[in-house]
Amino acid sequence: MKVVVDMTLCQDHGQCAIAAPEVFRMDEDSKLVFDAEPDGSLSDAVQDAIDVCPVQAIFLER
């Protein structure tokens, strides 16, 4: 599973970090950092993060 975030869309809402904290995190400057190749067992959490992103900036590449 490969996670891609379009950083031209991302507005640092941080909803992904709430939906899937194992994969997405807001750093001290409240900028997004994420694991681009999370374990397959986290696919439901990643899908939740994709769904709740207000600007739909998160993609899955299979």
Partner: peptide, 10 residues
Amino acid sequence: VPAARHAGYR
């Protein structure tokens, strides 16, 4: 409020 601290308030 910086997004890094939203989860705590939530």
